[in-house]
Amino acid sequence: MNIVVCISSVPDTTAKINFTDNGSNFDANGVQFVINPYDEFGLTKAMMLKEVTGGKVTVITVGDATVEAVMRKSLAIGADAAVRINMNATDSYSTANEIANYLSNNPADIIITGRESIDYNGGAVGGILAEMMSLPFINACNGLELSGNTAKLTREIDGGKENITAELPFVIGGQKGLVLESELRIPNMRGIMQARSKPLEIIEPSSKEGLTSSVSFEKPVEKEACKLVDADNVAELVNLLQNEAKVI
């Protein structure tokens, strides 16, 4: 079983988001980067599948050298190998295109992406990748059970879930539910030591062609100060919601 997990390196969830050069660039100063939380569920699931079926888990990231910290962490958690495609990911299409290129030379049985990256929030790389490879794509996937070459999957739908079966290979957009929060793995000392000697291959991009480009960023407008209502005067809150905010 060959499992490839696409990992996005993203600002830590507590990071303050700022921009430099008049909003054209993300200010990475002082920001810590982590494995995209949705990808962390996918990576853990990949480890668990491998422990049953045997095989190999490879993590792949499109990015410059700064993403290697997160890749080493993935190796410390238990991935067997890492591949970095040496390109600044600026567009979902070009990112997916590079991953598809790699996969056409290195076929995988299961390709795991996250439901979305918490920085770009495109929710797109998995779907684009699947179409490029003519594979099924199960998005917002919160359950995956394998027996032989057939998988039973569940995906979140608005207000419930959908049960699906699919034959290998396929692409998923993973999230919580794939594994439990409590099952997420934290790298231990042994893992960190082992990670140093695991392969991290660097591949040059085949083409950098993208279909969209970022023009600039803005910060959302700041809210006005909160209107506090006395706990003994709940009627006033209802009045404000009804007559001032007009939301009830």
């Binding site: 567009d91 979902s92 299409y93 997916a96 929710g123 797109a124 790389v125 998995g126 779907g127 684009i128 990748l129 699947a130 179409e131 490029m132 794509f137 199960i138 998005n139 917002a140 957009g173 993208g210 279909l211 969209t212």
Partner: peptide, 16 residues
């Protein structure tokens, strides 16, 4: 989100 990205790849159209 399972359709729009696929369509983007199939038709080579930028998706936002």
């Amino acid at each position: 989100k399972m359709i729009a990205p696929r369509l983007s790849a199939k038709l080579k159209i930028g998706a936002i």
